[in-house]
Design a protein around this nucleic acid. Structure first.
Lengths: 345, 345
DNA sequence: CCTCCTAATGGAACCGTTTGCTTTACAAAG
DNA sequence: CTTTGTAAAGCAAACGGTTCCATTAGGAGG
């Protein structure tokens, strides 16, 4: 049925080991034999059986991405698609296949990771989130499995991770609004157990403080990375007696919610409220008005994560113990949503 | 190091075959033995090696998705992510892993598919596009590999595919505009080599004809699934002496281009031009005004494709030869962009 | 009490590769 | 002419499971 290494060997009049060696470019194979065998492989349409290969080599040439459960909802968030694109592109260049998996909850995720890694189906894992405490990370560390985190982990300092400098990014975003003349600036944060939320909030704080601006507790609201949170935050802010003239939102999707709400209430952006948010998903420039956003290089995050992971898989000993956090540069893209200098109060 | 079936067997004082049978729920294993072995597996942290299993069973319990190169574009991103979400969710429910692969061109795609399928790394494939002639499809058919097409293929009538009834969808969209009182309706199509473009155009034609409405050739323009096409189509239409009062666009992205253009020229939507388009991507409801769109159930397309594929893998003979085209229902979402009844001429 | 059936388990071959250890053949060296 | 070295290729044992074909031990039936 299928043509195996033995069939090729028989037809070529050599032993299976020789064929195998031809395949892997073993040095001690005569050019003549090599050519003949290759010809026959071509002729018979031979393709090596990856399963058999993996079984003996204990290596699968594939990695896996774990999508967190919230990704189900956030999935529409283009963020993940960009990441996946970066990962798949780089992995494919390195000759690795990418498996994508998700679980309904942490237990299911752990189960999946365990099954894939212990079952020798993948060589390593990319985690697309960073929660505070994570059983999956514990498992990976304990088992000594290669893995890379996209995002930062404060609990585990020695973990390989690819991330942005979110503190600096939020600092830049806030400073931009301040430079435009805003003094009352609100902040819409994400879930407090995500480190990215905390980092961005921290950057906002630093910018406000270093400019001697007042920070009212009611100007900071918590939400999700979803439109809805923006919508709610907006209506909360706009009803405040001393409402902000600008806001920083933790994610572009939140901005969309804000925008929709303001639109319904006939407010103008950026005149009534200026907005800057994060991630610069492709939609940011399509909304009306286009949203100023911090481009965090999502594709690049994925690309780098794959690179780092595969390197680790191939040379686990090459790790110098110092450079385990890779920081992808961000940059502020100014668009209409923040192009307005308010009259000083 | 790793715990194998033999280790478990030894510790349990049984043979490897017995352990294997416990694992697969073989009927002729005593309850007592089963319990004991399961206990030991748990205790030793045993996880079956998928590679070894696959090697003998000739089955991998995984499928693969081929991302076409154009997936790099924005429209595709939203679309594909939804699709992937549907596929991954359903596959995971059926106990299948999903591998995601892409190629820079058709040759690379073919190479990947061939390597994965012949190399026994996956059991089947989902193709996320439908070009007119396709070497990958030829390969899959010739090899008798299980695969499902998302989209329709006119050349291969007997291929398993999951699709919408795009003709009917376009018919509905156009009829909606007609019902609102429009008589001069334009159509912005997509690339003519995509079947979806042709089907939607056909539906538009049918609706116009069945209502006895005039169809001017200059009211039909060809473009891509991109904003730009909408922008250009808009300026073409608006300069016509007898311009349309409404238009049907083949994709939401096209509508955005139209919207932007109309906005620049200070035209009002839907008063000066009403719009309906296809796909109902999340942004459709965020634009101003929100766009009426045909929801084609993208997630559902993916979900069903996975279902059909896995069913085919598991029971290849179960195919009745008739139902090889699965049609996902669409529905029109009416929003502001078409909520206006023009004065009759 | 012997035979036969059946439930429960063991033995061993096999899935398609890789790889350490030999073997072979020949040329150079002694 | 024997020894030694080396390049090229073959043998066979893994890798971790599955499964067909025994084998064993009771219990039922005669």
């Amino acid at each position: 049925m299928t043509v195996t290494i033995k069939d090729v060997a028989k037809k070529a009049g050599v032993s299976p080991s020789t064929v195998s060696r031809v395949l892997s470019g073993h040095p001690r194979i005569s050019l003549e034999t090599s050519r003949k065998v290759k010809g026959i492989m071509e002729e018979m349409g031979y393709t090596p059986n990856m399963m058999a290969k993996s079984l003996v080599s204990k290596t699968t040439n594939s990695i896996c991405i774990i999508l967190p459960k919230p990704a189900e909802e956030l999935f529409s968030n283009l963020f993940f698609m960009e990441l996946i694109r970066g990962i798949v592109t780089q992995s494919s260049r390195s000759g690795y296949d990418v498996l994508i998996s998700s679980g309904a909850n942490e237990r299911e995720e752990l189960e999946a990771v365990s099954r894939l890694l212990k079952g020798r189906r993948v060589d390593g894992v990319i985690l697309l989130y960073s929660r505070k405490d994570d059983a999956v990370i514990d498992f990976l560390e304990a088992g000594g499995y290669p893995f890379v985190l996209i995002g930062r982990s404060d609990r585990y300092e020695d973990i390989l991770s690819v991330d942005n400098d979110n503190i600096k990014a939020a600092f830049d975003a806030t400073n931009h609004l301040i430079a435009m003349g805003h003094e009352r600036i609100g902040f819409v944060s994400g879930p407090p157990n995500l480190i990215v939320s905390r980092d961005r909030l921290e950057g906002y704080r630093m910018a406000m403080e270093s400019n001697g601006l007042e920070m009212r507790p009611e100007w900071i609201v918590e939400g999700e990375f979803l439109q809805d949170s923006g919508y709610r935050a907006m209506s909360f802010f706009m009803n405040l007696p001393n409402r902000p003239t600008a806001l920083v939102a933790v994610d572009d999707m939140v901005s969309f919610g804000v925008l929709r709400g303001l639109n319904e209430l006939k407010y103008k952006v950026p005149e009534d409220l200026a907005i800057v948010s994060f991630n610069n998903i492709p939609l940011s420039e399509l909304s009306s008005p286009p949203i100023s956003s911090i481009d965090i290089g999502i594709y690049h995050l994925g690309y780098t994560a794959s690179q780092v992971l595969i390197q680790t898989i191939q040379k686990p000993d090459n790790h110098d113990g110092y450079t385990n956090r890779f920081v992808i540069p961000h940059r502020l893209i100014v668009r209409e949503s923040s192009m307005y200098a308010p009259g000083k109060k």
